[in-house]
Amino acid sequence: MDFYYSPTACSQAAHILLHETGLSFRPHKVDIYQGKLEDGSGYTVVNPNGYVPALVFDDGMLLTENVALLDWIAMQGDGLVPDGAFGRTRHLQMLAFISTELQKPFVRLFFAEGEEDKAFLAAALTRRFDWIATRIEGTYLFGDHFSASDAFLYVMLRWAAMCGHTVPAALQRLAGRIETRPAVRKVLAGEAVEPLGMAA
Rank of each mutant, 00 (worst) to 15 (best):
D78V: 05
S24E: 06
N47L: 14
L55R: 01
L18H: 07
L62I: 00
H91T: 12
V56E: 03
L95T: 04
H28L: 02
Y33K: 14
M94E: 10
K29N: 11
E38I: 00
T21H: 02
T44W: 06
T21D: 03
R90E: 04
G40M: 14
R90N: 06
F97E: 01
Q34W: 03
V52T: 14
H91E: 08
L55S: 03
T89N: 15
L37T: 11
V56P: 02
D39M: 02
N47Y: 13
G35Q: 12
P48K: 13
R88I: 13
I98P: 09
N66H: 13
V45M: 11
L63A: 07
Q93H: 09
D59P: 01
M75K: 08
F86P: 09
I32D: 07
R26S: 07
L62S: 00
P82M: 09
V56C: 01
M94L: 15
S99K: 04
Y33T: 09
Q76N: 05
L95E: 01
D58M: 14
L80Y: 07
T64M: 06
A85Q: 09
P53I: 14
F57Y: 13
F57H: 12
N49K: 15
V56H: 01
D83E: 05
G22T: 05
M94Q: 13
G42I: 08
K36E: 10
H91S: 10
L18N: 06
L92A: 03
Y51E: 00
V52R: 07
Q34C: 00
L37V: 10
Q93F: 06
T21F: 02
G60P: 12
Q76E: 07
G35M: 06
R88P: 09
I98K: 11
P48S: 11
F86W: 14
Q93K: 09
A85K: 13
L62V: 02
G40R: 10
D58T: 14
L23F: 05
R90C: 03
Y33G: 04
H19L: 09
V46C: 02
Q34P: 00
T44I: 05
T89I: 15
G50P: 13
P82F: 10
I32H: 09
E38F: 01
